[in-house]
Design a protein around this nucleic acid. Structure first.
Length: 671
DNA sequence: GACTCTATAAACAATT
DNA sequence: GAATTGTTTATAGAGT
C-alpha cells in the first residue's frame, strides 16, 4: 500500500494547471473602429452630386468655387469613410479606368460598407463575395478618385487664377476670406486624408519606410499648421518634402499636389520587407498599445512581425521559411498587395478590432473590480460583521443561507486554500479551508461562480462542503449521485477534466460523512444534507481557541479582499500565493464565529444519520432542516464555547427556526 | 507527537 | 456482463 499510495499522491497533484480557462469570447457586435472614427462625416452624401461637379458652367465663379469645394470635401469624406471601413488597394485595377465605372454603381458599392458594419458585412457576405465586393469597390474608388482629383485640381487652378485676376478688382478682403475658407476646406480634406492614412498605417495596411512615413504624414500636418505653405499646396507644388510622389506615380495614380497625400496610402505596392509599418505616428489610441509594443519589439533587425518559428505568420499561411530573407521573398510574392491580401488584412483588422473592444471591456471590468476590492479592505468591519457579507444575498438559489453571514468570513480563507490546493500541492493543502468557515461556499461560489466555471482551478472547498452546497442549491435539497456529479462539472471547470478521482471522492464523502443522508426516493436514491450533522463535524476545538480568534481578526481584514481577486491571483501566479505564509490569513478566518449551530442541537443525540441504516426521511423535511439549521449556526457560532454540541444559544438569530427544526427533526428522524 | 480532518485510492457488494 | 452506486478500509498530508 505504501508504494501505491505514494505514487498516487504524486499523481494526485493537480496536474492540469492550465491556467485560466477559455475566455468566453463574447462578440459584442462593436462596430469597426476605423469606420467609426471617421464615420461622422456625412457619409450619406450622394456620389451623384459629386459626379456632377463638371456641370457647373452657369454658376458664378465664387459660387462655383464654393460648390465645388463642398463637393470636393464631401467626396473626400466619403472616400475616406470608405477607406476606413474597408481597405483599398491600388492594386490591379489602377490602369483600368472607365468613366462609366464612376457612375452609380460606384456609389452603391461605396455606400454599402457605410451602411453596414464590418461585422455585418462579414456575416452577410461570404469570403468570395466580400472579396469581390472589395475588388469592385477598390477599382471604382480608385478610378473615381483619380478622375476626381484631376478634375478638381484643374478646376482649382483655373478658379484660383480667375479669382486672382478678379481679385485684383475686388476688395482684397473678400477674396481673402474666400481663399481662407477654401484653404480651410482643403485643410479639412487633407486632415481627413491624414487620418485615413494613419488608420491604415496603424493597421499595418500601409507600409511606409521611415522616411516615407515622415514624408506625407509629417509634411501634411506642417502644411496644415503653416498657412504660408497652403498656397503651394493648392498649386500642386506640393509641400516641401513629399518624396512619396514618385511612388505614387509609379502606381499609376498620377495625382499631384494636394492629391499626393491622399494617394500615399496607395503608394506602397508591396509590403516592403523591412516593414516599418509599426512605426506608428504618435497620438494613436492607447487601446492599441499592447499590439504596438509587441510590434515594436519585433522590429528588431532580423525579425519580422509576420515571421516566427520559421514560418510565415500570415493568417492561414504558415508557410515554412528557412530564414528571414526567404520569408521576405515569400511575403512579397504570396502576400503582395492584392485583393486577397487586402481582404485578409481586413479580416484581421476586424479581428483586432474585436479583440480591442473586448480588451477595453475587460480592462474596464478589471478596473472596476480592483476599485471595488480596494475599497473593501478599507472598510472597517467589525469583527462579527464580516459575516454580513453580501455574498449570501447574491446566492443564486435563494436558499436561506444562514451561513452566509458565516460564509463571509470564510471568504478570506478561501484564497489561501485555493492557492495551495489548486495549484501545486494536490489536494490536501486545500482541505480545511472551507470547512472551518462553515459554509463560506455559498458566498464564495456566488461571487466567483464564473471564475470557477471557466478556470481550471481546483475549488478551495472540501468535497463535503461542495456536495452539501450542491444539494442545498436545489429546491428539494436533494440530489442523486449523478446530479451531484453534474453539479460539480457544471460549476467547476476543474471537475470537468479530472473525472476519475473526484467522483470516487464524492461517493466516498457521501458515504463517510454522517451529514449526508441517503434517502430512497421514487426515482431512486437521493442524497440530502443533515445540516446538524454537518455542523457537528466541524472541529470544536477551533471555535474556542484563542488563536482562532486572533486569526479571525487578522483574517477579517485580510479577508476583505475579494475572494475572486485572490483566487485569480493565486491561479495566475502562483507559487507565491501558494506559499504557506499566504495561507495564514485564511486560517484566521476560521475564527468565525462559526456557526456551529449545532449548538442548536441541544441535546439531541441526533440520530439523523448516525444510524447505520439509512434513515429514510422525507426529502421535504430534510430540506427544511437544512435551512433552519444553517442560519442559526452562523449566528450562534460565537457563543458556542466549545464543541459542537454545546448548549444551544438562545439568542442566536433565527433561533426560532432552529428550534422548530430541531423539534421537527427528532421526530422525523425517529420515524 | 497525538489527534483530527481531508483527499485519494482501492476493493467489494449491491443495484441498475 | 458492464456500468453505476454505495460502503468500507487504508494511507498520507496538513492543521490544531
Amino acid at each position: 500500500m505504501m508504494v501505491e499510495s505514494a505514487s498516487e499522491t504524486i499523481r494526485s497533484a493537480p496536474s492540469g494547471q492550465n491556467g485560466v480557462g477559455s475566455l468566453s469570447g463574447q462578440a459584442d457586435g462593436g462596430s469597426g473602429g476605423g469606420a467609426g472614427a471617421a464615420g461622422t462625416a456625412g457619409g450619406g452624401v450622394g456620389r451623384d452630386s459629386a459626379a456632377g461637379a463638371d456641370s457647373n458652367g452657369e454658376m458664378s465663379p465664387a459660387d462655383l468655387l464654393h460648390f465645388q469645394q463642398q463637393q470636393a470635401l464631401q467626396v473626400a469624406r466619403q472616400f475616406l469613410l470608405q477607406q476606413a471601413s474597408g481597405l483599398s488597394s491600388p492594386g490591379n485595377n489602377d490602369s483600368k479606368q472607365s468613366a462609366s465605372a464612376v457612375q452609380v454603381p460606384v456609389s452603391v458599392a461605396m455606400m454599402s460598407p457605410q451602411m453596414l458594419t464590418p461585422q455585418q458585412m462579414q456575416q452577410i457576405l461570404s469570403p468570395p463575395q466580400l472579396q469581390a465586393l472589395l475588388q469592385q469597390q477598390q477599382a471604382l474608388m480608385l478610378q473615381q478618385l483619380q478622375e476626381y482629383y484631376k478634375k478638381q485640381q484643374e478646376q482649382l487652378h483655373l478658379q484660383l487664377l480667375t479669382q486672382q485676376q478678379a481679385g485684383k478688382q475686388q476688395p482684397k478682403e473678400a477674396l481673402g476670406n474666400k481663399q481662407l475658407a477654401f484653404q480651410q476646406q482643403l485643410l479639412q480634406m487633407q486632415q481627413l486624408q491624414q487620418q485615413h492614412l494613419l488608420n491604415l498605417q496603424r493597421q499595418g495596411l500601409v507600409s511606409l519606410q521611415p522616411n516615407q512615413a515622415s514624408g506625407p504624414l509629417q509634411a501634411l500636418p506642417q502644411a496644415a499648421v503653416c498657412p504660408t505653405d497652403l498656397p503651394q499646396l493648392w498649386k500642386g507644388e506640393g509641400a516641401p518634402g513629399q518624396p512619396p510622389e514618385d511612388s505614387v506615380k509609379q502606381e499609376g495614380l498620377d495625382l499631384t499636389g494636394t492629391a499626393t497625400t491622399a494617394t500615399s496610402f496607395a503608394a506602397p505596392p508591396k509590403v516592403s520587407p523591412p516593414l516599418s509599418h509599426h512605426t506608428l505616428p504618435n497620438g494613436q489610441p492607447t487601446v492599441l498599445t499592447p499590439r504596438r509594443d509587441s510590434s515594436s519589439h519585433e522590429e528588431t533587425p532580423g525579425s519580422h512581425p509576420l515571421y516566427g518559428h520559421g514560418e510565415c505568420k500570415w493568417p492561414g499561411c504558415e508557410t515554412l521559411c528557412e530564414d528571414l530573407g526567404q520569408f521576405i521573398k515569400h511575403l512579397n510574392t504570396e502576400h503582395a498587395l492584392d485583393d486577397r491580401s487586402t481582404a485578409q488584412c481586413r479580416v484581421q483588422m476586424q479581428v483586432v478590432q474585436q479583440l480591442e473592444i473586448q480588451l477595453a471591456k475587460e480592462s474596464e471590468r478589471l478596473q472596476a473590480m480592483m476599485a471595488h476590492l480596494h475599497m473593501r479592505p478599507s472598510e472597517p468591519k467589525p469583527f462579527s460583521q464580516p459575516v454580513t457579507v453580501s455574498a449570501a444575498d447574491s446566492f443564486p438559489d435563494g436558499l436561506v443561507h444562514p451561513p452566509t453571514s458565516a460564509a463571509a468570513p470564510v471568504t478570506p480563507l478561501r484564497p489561501p486554500g485555493l492557492g495551495s490546493a489548486s495549484l501545486h500541492s494536490g489536494g490536501p493543502a486545500r482541505r480545511r479551508s472551507s470547512d472551518k468557515f462553515c459554509s463560506p461556499i455559498s458566498s464564495e461560489l456566488a461571487q466567483n461562480h464564473e471564475f470557477y466555471k471557466n478556470a481550471d482551478v481546483r475549488p478551495p472547498f472540501t468535497y463535503a462542503s461542495l456536495i452539501r452546497q450542491a444539494i442545498l442549491e436545489t429546491p428539494d435539497r436533494q440530489l442523486t449521485l449523478n446530479e451531484i456529479y453534474n453539479w460539480f462539472t457544471r460549476m467547476f471547470a476543474y471537475f470537468r477534466r479530472n473525472t476519475a478521482t473526484w467522483k470516487n471522492a464524492v461517493r466516498h464523502n457521501l458515504s463517510l460523512h454522517k451529514c449526508f443522508v441517503r434517502v430512497e426516493n421514487v426515482k431512486g436514491a437521493v442524497w440530502t444534507v443533515d445540516e446538524r450533522e454537518y455542523q457537528k463535524r466541524r472541529p470544536p476545538k477551533m471555535t474556542g481557541s484563542p488563536t482562532l480568534v486572533k486569526n479571525m481578526i487578522s483574517g477579517l481584514s485580510y479577508g476583505a479582499l475579494n475572494a475572486s481577486y485572490q483566487a485569480a491571483l493565486a491561479e495566475s501566479s502562483f507559487p507565491l500565493l501558494n506559499s504557506p505564509g499566504m495561507l495564514n490569513p485564511g486560517s484566521a478566518s476560521s475564527l468565525l464565529p462559526l456557526s456551529h449551530d449545532d449548538v442548536g442541537a441541544p441535546g439531541e443525540p441526533l440520530p439523523s444519520n448516525g444510524s447505520s441504516s439509512p434513515p429514510r426521511l422525507s426529502p421535504p423535511q430534510y430540506s427544511h432542516q437544512v435551512q433552519v439549521k444553517e442560519e442559526p449556526a452562523e449566528a450562534e457560532e460565537d457563543r458556542r464555547p466549545g464543541p459542537a454540541l454545546g448548549p444551544p444559544n438562545p439568542s442566536t438569530t433565527g433561533p426560532a427556526e432552529d428550534r422548530d427544526l430541531e423539534e421537527e427533526l427528532p421526530g422525523e428522524e425517529l420515524s
